[in-house]
Design a protein around this nucleic acid. Sequence first.
DNA 1: ATGACAATCAGAGATTGA
Length: 259
Amino acid sequence: MKVATFNINGIKARIHALPDWLKSADPDVVVLQEIKSVDEAFPRELFEDLGYVVETHGQKSFNGVAILSKLPLEDVTRELPGDDEDEQARWIEATVMGEVPVRVCGLYLPNGNPAPGPKYDYKLGWMARLKTRAEALLAAEEPALMAGDYNIIPQDEDAARPEAWQKDALAMPSSRAAFRDILNLGFTEAFRSRVQGPGHYSFWDYQAGAWQRNDGIRIDHFLLTPECADLLRDCQIDAAVRGGEKPSDHVPVWVELAA
DNA sequence: ATGACAATCAGAGATTGA
């Protein structure tokens, strides 16, 4: 079973690029971030025609997440628990009924800039709620994963120019520590469990020719429970998608899971 | 230190992003 994450930076703007990638990569499940659309405006038929079940958690203008799946989904939920006041659409989860059922959580973690400030406080608060949900996933002792745009550069090797990010909410020591606080509960970061070393990125800014200069950062991640890590067969970044027609600034990252 | 670029909503330019 191939599960992917892709921050598409607007479904309307990716109406060609996303189906094109789905046809070539043929993932069974995709979690999308930044659909930037309300549920009613999401072009679900486009993906249903490609064989996907569509579950969205949309919002006007900003944020918004979704799950596309060729396998049946059960128990879809759309809120990260812990703050009833939080109006931002950044979380969706469902159980994918494959050969082995897998709980798949799709997340769009807050950017947090400028830091310090209220947006950074929101990021850290959101990560504290994420940790609580992560603990519950571990306690269930079942295959589960949390995938999406974490807006975290885990280590200096995950940026082409780490010095440029030192004071940024994506790479500050307190941001990295909050990420490790979750990882260290017992999750496997899928990509780093299989690939070592610098030069692997999932985002390149639209500005200043970042793609052409390979000035990227790696901020889209998969965290697997131990039971899910047992199933991990591969994890790759589809970097070439960034060079396509009218691309998102992020590219897809995917895992292959097998019993 | 700033802006570069893109998307959204709206119907110009502000806001957001990373």
